[in-house]
């Protein structure tokens, strides 16, 4: 057979593409649920690490199934709030159908562009409320979860993650427990400008709503600082009205 004729080339290419696409679609469909379960468990681990349900190391070596149970056992309620600070939705906390707002990027964009938002608040039985933060680091997105004490004026714990910050520098926001541990006990300056400062020598002034930036990772720290303030601002009305 002439493998160089035009019709053969066209038929061959079409066939290859169709076969490959079908195979991939099949695999993607089969593995999709497992991938989503992984992503969800990862989010839950990070949230519970911030809330201090268990130490981060223990959470990250717990299986997906146990993570779901642990979350269901410890969560009190989860809901979303809108731009005006009022609740605009409930999130299920039943073990079998845990609902999360885990796509933070669209929310981040909506906050910045002034569109309508559904910002999640996860209230644990211990009384702390966990909220997400999300922003742009040096190479890619940085995000995290902040646990607020009852009264919502001070921070109980935090957990940060990133997509591709420089390992050993920007990646310390995740890899160095000492960094996230510094957030515990700090306050959020609701109504202040800025509400929180992540800057060089910020702790030296004695301010309670400040943490020192990571040395050598200026851009990552700046990104995280912006993320914290954007999200704190977005939640401000909610936590203020809740206090009253």
């Amino acid at each position: 057979m002439n493998t160089n004729s035009n019709s053969y080339t066209v038929v061959y290419t079409t066939l290859i593409v169709v076969v490959v696409a079908a195979l991939l679609a099949f695999v993607a469909m089969k593995l999709g649920p497992a991938q989503e379960a992984n992503a969800k468990a990862e989010t839950l681990r990070q949230m519970m690490a911030a809330a201090g349900i268990k130490p981060a190391d223990a959470l990250f070596s717990t299986s997906n199934a146990d993570i779901l149970s642990l979350y269901a056992d410890n969560i009190a309620e989860a809901y979303t709030v809108g731009r005006d600070g009022r609740r605009n939705g409930e999130l299920s906390v039943l073990r079998e159908k845990i609902e999360l707002v885990d796509r933070l990027k669209p929310q981040y964009k909506a906050i910045k562009s002034g569109g309508e938002v559904t910002l999640p608040v996860y209230v644990f039985k211990s009384g702390v409320a966990v909220i997400p933060v999300y922003g742009a680091g040096l190479w890619g997105p940085v995000w995290g979860y902040i646990a607020l004490q009852e009264g919502r004026g001070s921070i109980a714990g935090a957990y940060f993650d990133h997509e591709s910050e420089t390992p050993g520098l920007g990646a310390k926001i995740k890899d160095e427990p000492a960094f996230r541990e510094k957030f515990a006990g700090k306050t959020v300056g609701w109504g202040e400008e800025p509400a929180f400062r992540l800057e060089k020598n910020a702790e030296a002034g004695g301010a309670t709503n400040a943490v020192d930036a990571i040395t050598g990772a200026t851009m990552t720290s700046r990104g995280l600082d912006e993320a914290l303030n954007v999200w704190f601002k977005a939640y401000e009305r909610h936590f203020k009205t809740e206090e009253d």
């Binding site: 493998t3 160089n4 053969y8 080339t9 061959y12 290419t13 490959v20 195979l23 991939l24």
Partner: peptide, 17 residues
């Protein structure tokens, strides 16, 4: 069976898969 002219594309499709 690979047609010479589109060989690179076919190879890339296999690798990408």
């Amino acid at each position: 069976t690979i047609p010479m002219r589109v060989r690179i594309i076919v190879q890339l499709v296999v690798v990408a898969m």
